[in-house]
Nucleic acid binder design. Sequence first.
DNA 1: CCCTCAAAAGATATTCATATCTTTTGAGGG
DNA 2: CCCTCAAAAGATATGAATATCTTTTGAGGG
Lengths: 165, 165
Amino acid sequence: MAPSQCQKNNKRNYHTITMLGKTTEYSIRALVYIYLQNKAGARPGFKEIAKNIDSPEEFTGKVLQLIARAGLISSLKGRGGGFFFDDPEKPLSLVKVMEVTETHDFFHKCGFGLKSCDADNPCPMHDEYAVVRDSFFELMKKLTIQSLATKINQNKAVLNRLEIV
Amino acid sequence: MAPSQCQKNNKRNYHTITMLGKTTEYSIRALVYIYLQNKAGARPGFKEIAKNIDSPEEFTGKVLQLIARAGLISSLKGRGGGFFFDDPEKPLSLVKVMEVTETHDFFHKCGFGLKSCDADNPCPMHDEYAVVRDSFFELMKKLTIQSLATKINQNKAVLNRLEIV
DNA sequence: CCCTCAAAAGATATTCATATCTTTTGAGGG
DNA sequence: CCCTCAAAAGATATGAATATCTTTTGAGGG
């Protein structure tokens, strides 16, 4: 007798929860790195950035194009080129990043999947879900590239396994 | 002069935030529907379920196979067949559903995307992100198919635009 | 003015989540 | 015992997110 009489089924499970997509993660990590390097007088390129935030090089380049096109940072081509903030001390919230990298209605959708769901016609988890979703929203509004960078400068957090040089 | 001198760029934005994937959404809605129908003495099939929870028919069938294989519900083939709970009053939390439909480590991952991130070596949003993530976890543990169904029975919420017959 | 460097842009590849279609299995009724 | 009905299983299709590769553009140095 075989050890299992269940039908062989190699199907993977389905969805993977990710509050933030890879594009957003790389964007935030890259922006923090750029900010830190800018303060140190440098202007990193995407390959250097990718190495330091542990992300795929070419894709990081693409993501930074997106971020630059959106005006969150500037870039310069050629020798000595790279990415940099025009106004490094202007607070850049994570929500602003998400507006570039995530689809629009992120913080207003029903957690239950209903097309229309509001206080008048709520889904059965409407109120309680909204609390969680809104607290995430508030957090993303509150956190900024600068505040994250500060934590790293104070050695209260890391950008990666590595120390930033 | 053209109204825009920006490069034409029809690229869509990237990721779409979804706390729960479609598979999970359909699973939860379907289970609530099945529970309500069971209590009314019926044993719905996947086509009926899909119609009532507004989900794609065939895919809903697939999802219910997954849920049934995991043992959360039973099913019967043939005339009078359909899906049903073996023990309808045994509370079934949404986390239990997610364990089937979402990948394993959902509530323990770093929101910043670091491979290792903990209190000793935190990412710069570790503490605050953990609060949000954990409150979502608690909610999913607290909510059950039965509690959602009760809200619907009390007309305090809807499963869909439609009323359940 | 040319040469090199680095980002921008464009094209293509891969994987996963979602979705649909077809064939097989099994339960019950006539 | 056969016939029908409904789920299970298997195969395939589509779109989005992620990833890589190649070509073009533009800035600066020699």
